[in-house]
Design a protein around this nucleic acid. Sequence first.
DNA 1: ATGAAAGCGCTAACAT
DNA 2: ATGTTAGCGCTTTCAT
Lengths: 336, 336
Amino acid sequence: MTTTRPTIRDVARLAGVSHQTVSRVINGALLVSTETRQRVDQAIQTLGFRPNAIARSMAQGQTFTLACLSPNLTDFTFASIIEGAVNEARTHGYFLLSAPCNDEDSFATLVDELVNSRRTDGLIVINPYIDGRFHFLSPQFPVVYVGAPPRGEPFNSVALDNRDGAGLAVRHLVDLGHTKIATITGPLTDDSAVERDLGFRAALVEAGITIHPSWIVQGDWSATSGYEAFHTLAQAAEFPSAVFAQNDRMAIGLMRAAAEAGLHIPDELSIIGFDDMPLASYFTPPLTTLSQDMWEIGRIASRLLIQKAENPLEPPTHTCVAAHLVIRATTKAVKQ
Amino acid sequence: MTTTRPTIRDVARLAGVSHQTVSRVINGALLVSTETRQRVDQAIQTLGFRPNAIARSMAQGQTFTLACLSPNLTDFTFASIIEGAVNEARTHGYFLLSAPCNDEDSFATLVDELVNSRRTDGLIVINPYIDGRFHFLSPQFPVVYVGAPPRGEPFNSVALDNRDGAGLAVRHLVDLGHTKIATITGPLTDDSAVERDLGFRAALVEAGITIHPSWIVQGDWSATSGYEAFHTLAQAAEFPSAVFAQNDRMAIGLMRAAAEAGLHIPDELSIIGFDDMPLASYFTPPLTTLSQDMWEIGRIASRLLIQKAENPLEPPTHTCVAAHLVIRATTKAVKQ
DNA sequence: ATGAAAGCGCTAACAT
DNA sequence: ATGTTAGCGCTTTCAT
């Protein structure tokens, strides 16, 4: 029942030409007479022939497949990057395969099976510096790093301007009169957390506000950790009037804890998040946050990768995408 | 600089054996003497040889790649299915490539490029019945449908038990004494919406409650549509005491509208959603909903697909995964 | 404008 | 236990 599918030779036989001519036709070569082209097209139709992509890859040494390694596939930000990347890849005739990758070991395995086994023409790596993973990649292979600032390696990268985004957050709070500003960071092993923290500190310094160490608490991106951070902050000598949470989930957890403690938001505590996740405007009150176009970041990553794959000599590029402030209802001018 | 990578023939030459023996070694064949195996392994090491997956696919007529076509990659439910599917696939030595697919045209193109071009060994299709898309698939090709009940086609399928889930929702409300129960459905072109609606109606009938047509309003899964549904319901002759929203986003939109209208939830209106999306417990009040293990559904889909790919004669299976009730704070016993 | 020959890097089938 | 010979279905030379 495995009716073996027709090959270019079957088409050639039916059209009365060589298989090479068929190859020329399906590749749109110009040096084929209109008449034979028609005969071949006809034969392709009647046989229902479709070229075998694997055989093509084999002959060309190219797979027209990219891969994306992401900490996970479900976080909205990662999923958006991937979706943007797939869409861009498709417009260039590529497919994109994605795999979740949590640690160095699985990264090494994936690189082996994807890169060393020649399954892909290029790799998008989200959050490459979490651990030593980026060491597994040879500089010759087309790679684009997403979400991390360049560190001198000769790789392409696309990143959100985390530092600047954090600055926007702080300046918004300062503009509202806040001076007692705390922050909840992500794990400081993540580049984005470090960058947001640097931006936070720089903006505070710029505003002439001294940094209060007990107002910097580390979370793990989860809502729970934001919830716990509230209680950590509550133990400090003085309580802040505003908190910049490095992501929306932690901001939401913080809001919950504050509400349970009887604090009114934003009257008694201003909160600003980062990400503008779906439904951020549906929490109570609607969350002020920083919005980022992850879809666009994914598109840029794909575009850079394909450029690099098709022209390996191009020097690496570092693109930075700006975040922008979305003011909703969790921030308010400080009471004097 | 394109240092051409070593092939099995290079390894063979260095080890002083035939290339076929190398093939045997890398495939773990038993009929190789320990001594030659060691020599070959040694040669593989020194050359840094890794088998070319494409060449393998070519020779074996198998790609060890699956594909998943999903309406999008960002919705948490879809992303979870995909992540579950990737993980299961990886444990069987397969990769999974995913692509968003909104309409019949892009579906046809994708099937052509993935299936007809022999790029994949099998296909997972999420929500196959949205339009006529499923017609493009030949019954011989390994396919698993996710999220739709079987319709007599000879395909494998995995679906959430939407009908039963809706029944759980209604029974929960009935148990709390509600009889004035409205619903917000998804677009009734989606199977899951139809199924949830059928479950809703059946449970109402079973409880001896008559169905009030103006208490059935159609949304589009978005929070906005849930928000608007509130105002549609407000125009009905009588207002319900409880609403079953077919997904959490619509439930959240409804909550927002109800709050703005000064209705207290759950005292004056009980609301139950469906999905148990991330942070469902962080809304105000925390959302009562139905939880579903999409990750598991993805795993099952992959497993079925690989079984089918490796043993085409297996008869198709239809798996149903149960949803379960998560009671939080948006539902409450009706005031008498 | 077309064809013939030679691979791409591997596995399958049949030796020995 | 190992080697030899043919492919897999296409593209890339190089002829003509």
